[in-house]
Write a protein that binds this DNA or RNA. Structure first.
Lengths: 248, 248
DNA sequence: TATAATTGTCTATATCAATAGACAAATTTT
DNA sequence: AAAATTTGTCTATTGATATAGACAATTATA
């Protein structure tokens, strides 16, 4: 993108082969390495990045394992087509409508649910007393069989009693909220950060260790500003980008 | 936040000491380890994360080097206060106004500028012909002496001839644009992703290898929708979070 | 003042990461 | 058919990473 050659750093806690695997992923994302085409040969990559051919091979092996590349002896190593989903974030964004046109199948799977006392932070966000009961939902967003998000969502237990059953049945938060008389709601605030995926993310999102997740912490409110939902969502950075559209 | 214990992954290309350094940073960010207070002793951390004490010491050494912790023999290891900046992103966000109240000093430093032909992508974003001349600015955002952003910005060279001089003088894009008759503008679209910092990011943002950067790609437009600016910005995830406020 | 708790330093060992070179196996090109 | 290209496998060597244990140095506590 910027066109600046970015080199490789040594003895920094991240192995060279993983840094080069990341570089190749970047190259694919930026169009530097075309999809369905052959990557430069291993010796060329080794020279480009200033490392040994075997180090490049380790990086390629990891990406083959992740399903990003396919190596064929005598022919070359090929980039498999796998576009990043562009996930829109706006005041009225909904999971399924946002991905329309990019995927054919999408839904939210309820992994688990529980009732617990509200921490200070969640109580503040939902405008209830600290320690009041809240329902926590652990969910995974899926599109075309691939995990694209992993979220933890809290609702006021008094107002939304039984919402976990609605979620399990409908696979949609928007539809579930309609059962509680909420036909429309807005995204009030979203705070965004990024970190390395933890063990839970790795398992739920089918990622390789070392992967990066985008993290959003959001509060949804009714049209008159009443908070109804507090959520932390994790998105695999290698498969998803967040699109902050204006005017929504 | 989610309360799920997240463990450590081995032989994944990221060394244990760096994973544990990341965990400690997370712990500080989440309030698990209070600022200005002592961290649990090394033996306790080693047991908590299931690694050797010396591995914990490597992680602590890295964080001491980064200025996050201070170790005192016989007393303990202490968390230095260093809050993450919350950087607001909205239709009318400006660098300096957005950080008001969080820092006392802030400005944008112009690292370099150049004129080059527009790539296809930049031409499309700016609504000009591919290959037409564009001005590229490489800038660094600083707050209280700390680097908080690193951006590459493109302008139509015909319309904004000499904007690099205005930037160098004023240290503000908003002020520079006023010289070209633009008193107000909007953030039209922003696409967000995350990746490991490359060599350029490391140097410009004063990061340690392995750090994560948030990346935004944005187009700014005049009030009547005419594109004026295309920018890719990198933010150090350990020091900055992006706050997508509603209703802006 | 003595004891406990905590960080700092040293030695030793095993495994992982990276480099180096040689050659085999499969495919494409000449 | 032969040569060139490219991925796959093997051995060997060096340095970084991680574990293990012992003890010193410093500070807080009983």
């Amino acid at each position: 993108m910027t066109g600046l050659a970015s080199s490789i750093e040594r003895r920094n806690g991240v192995s060279l082969w993983r840094q080069i695997a990341d570089k190749i992923l970047q190259g694919i994302a930026s169009g530097d390495f075309a999809e369905n085409a052959a990557l430069p040969p291993e010796v060329a990559l080794a020279e480009r990045y200033g490392v040994n051919r075997h180090t490049v091979r380790s990086a390629i092996a990891a990406l083959v394992q992740e399903g990003v590349l396919r190596a064929e002896q005598g022919r070359g190593t090929f980039v498999l087509s796998r576009k990043r989903l562009s996930y829109p974030i706006g005041a009225r964004t909904r999971f399924s409508t946002g991905l329309q046109g990019q995927t054919s199948e999408r839904h939210i799977a309820l992994l688990s649910s529980s009732t617990e006392p509200a921490s200070r932070r969640i109580a503040e966000a939902l405008g209830i007393a600290k320690g009041a009961a809240v329902i926590r939902l652990e969910t995974r967003g899926e599109a075309d069989g691939h995990a694209v998000s992993r979220a933890t969502t809290w609702f006021d237990a008094k107002r939304f009693a039984g919402i976990e059953d609605a979620m399990a049945q409908t696979g949609s938060i928007t539809t579930s909220l309609k059962r509680f008389g909420i036909n429309d709601y807005l995204r009030h605030s979203t705070v965004l950060s990024a970190r390395h995926a933890d063990a839970d993310d790795l398992a739920a999102l089918d990622l390789q260790p070392g992967a990066i997740v985008l993290v959003t912490v959001a509060v949804n409110v009714t049209l008159d500003g009443q908070p109804i939902q507090f959520a932390e969502s994790r998105f695999p950075a290698e498969r998803v980008e967040l699109n902050l559209s204006a005017g929504d």
